[in-house]
Design a protein around this nucleic acid. Structure first.
Lengths: 220, 220
DNA sequence: GACGAATTCGACAATATTGTCAAGTCTTTT
DNA sequence: AAAAGACTTGACAATATTGTCGAATTCGTC
């Protein structure tokens, strides 16, 4: 009765488990598409199961509620994005390089994946509401923490304090997603990476300078 | 039968027209609150009319459809924001000052008005979808144009080309709203304006530098 | 004060959505 | 090959939402 968690240890997957995983993935894939097309709120279960070509009951068997599904999706998006950030930053040690790499990670990740950007953005938008989908907040916090850690790691002897790190993270994530979203409405060109290059460079420099600033006077 | 457009010429309002306006405003006000709480998609008409303490029929009488209502709301938000930007920029002539003023306009406008920020953000999020609410796009384009005009006006002899102006506008609007939204999740402090000051300054400088850059090599 | 226009109202039928469940299919175990 | 377990299914009853419409109310005008 209780859903069998898919075997993560790789080898010993029984046929049941494979089938379980397949259906689950079908649902997730369909949901990603539907959400990216019409948003997360106000989506009927049927729209998802029908697109996944799966019985209505299966949805409830696997997820039990919309929130769980949204949670799984946002989680995986953030996982992928985080993984990408880690990878791009792996060999960077200079603060400036890390900041560059972080932006590049976002651009590369979202490039040719407008759908995933929409999910990311819709998720963020959800967070502004009074009652967002359950469990959506923590992946985003995790994401912010990763940025802070990567930036903090490269800040080296600058010893940037926690608060400053947070601001840098907000700026960085905010800037890149904000730019991306606007660039889409007012199409400036088709190669976002090339297009962003000069302004990105300026932006990074401004963050570096900010990091170097004396601990800001926020004891108003 | 056809709704009477409220008298905009100020003086000659008949009682009917006033009543018309009152109800209309009640609905809009309630909708703003509901939207800011639960998002724009997936809201039932009843949730709005009940909050407005108005009959269900009145909603259809005034707006006819959700899209029209959303349109009216987004329109007025953008109007207010644009008005604020114009005001803040009124006496500025230097590029740097104008950029500063634009950011300040946003901060001041949204300060203590989280609800309106949510509406603005939800509206933006809608735009990422395949089928956003009808008529939501144009106010946002108008908004971008205003930024471009204000920035372009102050760029003076730099003669920043159209494309560059667009990028600056995307950066500016993206940065401020992105930062704002993240700052809310990972609360850094309570005085956003003071808090943003140093990083804002850096950001503005980076935009100024970008504006001065030789027309970027985007002939890839 | 009565007639028509403007505005408001909420009941109504039509439709959509939800979550459950008993029954069916496939797989593993004994 | 039978029994038990895992997974899937779609029908179902309950509930929610929609857009309409005729009646009620308010208002301006004659």
């Amino acid at each position: 009765m209780e859903p069998n968690r898919a075997d993560t240890s790789g080898m010993t997957q029984t046929r049941h488990q494979r089938r379980y995983g397949r259906t689950r993935q079908r649902i997730i894939k369909a949901a990603r598409a539907v959400f990216a097309e019409r948003g997360m709120s106000g989506i009927a279960i049927d729209q998802i199961t029908e697109r996944a070509d799966v019985g209505r009951g299966s949805f409830y068997y696997h997820f039990g509620s919309i929130d769980k599904l949204v949670q799984a999706i946002v989680d995986s998006i953030i996982d992928e994005l985080v993984e990408r950030m880690e990878r791009e930053c792996a060999d960077k040690t200079e603060l400036q390089d890390v900041l560059e790499a972080l932006i590049v990670a976002h651009i590369r990740y979202f490039d040719d994946r407008w759908q995933d950007f929409v999910l990311y953005y819709q998720g963020r938008a959800e967070l502004t509401l009074a009652m967002p989908f359950e469990g959506i907040e923590s992946p985003f916090l995790r994401y912010m923490k990763v940025i802070e850690r990567l930036v903090g790691g490269a800040a080296g002897e600058l010893a940037v304090d926690e608060q400053k790190l947070q601001r840098i993270a907000c700026s960085l994530a905010g800037f890149i997603s904000g730019y991306y979203s606007f660039a889409r409405i007012a199409p400036v060109g088709d190669n976002l990476e090339a297009e962003l290059l000069p302004i990105r460079a300026s932006f990074v420099r401004s963050l570096v300078r900010f990091a170097g600033t004396e601990s800001s006077a926020n004891k108003k």
